[in-house]
Design a protein around this nucleic acid. Sequence first.
DNA 1: GTGCGAACGATAACCATTATCGCTATCAAT
DNA 2: ATTGATAGCGATAATGGTTATCGTTCGCAC
Lengths: 127, 127
Amino acid sequence: MAKLTIQRQTILNLINASNQHWDADELARELIIRGHKIGIATVYRGLAALETDGLVNSVQLADKKRYERAVKKHHDHMVCTKCGSIEEFANDTIEALQKVVAHEKGFQMSGHQLILFGCCARCGQQS
Amino acid sequence: MAKLTIQRQTILNLINASNQHWDADELARELIIRGHKIGIATVYRGLAALETDGLVNSVQLADKKRYERAVKKHHDHMVCTKCGSIEEFANDTIEALQKVVAHEKGFQMSGHQLILFGCCARCGQQS
DNA sequence: GTGCGAACGATAACCATTATCGCTATCAAT
DNA sequence: ATTGATAGCGATAATGGTTATCGTTCGCAC
Ligand SMILES: [Mn+2]
Ligand SMILES: [Mn+2]
Ligand SMILES: [Zn+2]
Ligand SMILES: [Zn+2]
């Protein structure tokens, strides 16, 4: 359990008070705006520490990693390739089948990442 | 349909003759070894062009993109977090459920990416 | 042969992330 | 309270995969 410093608490509070999927830079900028002096390296280190301790979760997108509250139950993501918005979904059958597939191959699964790409409802209408 | 230059044919041949998941650098190095003079930028451009034309497929991993033959039927990947090896699997039910989920959310799915992380059979035994 | 457009190769730029390093905050032991 | 060890901070340099730039070259129509 790494130390929960002021800086890390501030990061955690911001994430927990929102429903977004933040990247490190967005978090740093928002914290600066709110008057919290914090270095970008500290944000990266803090996020890594918070994730290790299970206090935040992350989604690894193609270009960057995004962080979100850990208090939500497990879900995967749909990313709109037009507007970049992220929606969440959960499907127990998919989750179960992943474990089955892994087991069949003698693979000890420790995690997974499922991302659907496409056009969200908002963007799809106007195309 | 972009032009299939000598360089791109060489890249394509190498990928098609193998069963690996190559990154750009590995391809460039292997081509150089085999006596084909080719610039790294050309490899990147060539891979992008080949993928656009459906002649190769790619897997976006956390750090880098890897390319493989397009002649195989669709599958997803299991990545060993110890040795980095990549195994393939396919599950029609998972594929179908993804479409169902997307449709439920009014999401027009154009693609997806499913990666299982964990310990492969080889690495799992010795741990 | 000349001209044009696409692609090439070398290399600089980009950008998210990580490493470095001097400094500071924390805290236990004296 | 002072010391010393340790962890974290902040500024900034470095890293590494990828993309942009630019002058040159290739393929091909005229
Ligand atoms: Mn989420
Ligand atoms: Mn594959
Ligand atoms: Zn959208
Ligand atoms: Zn392995």
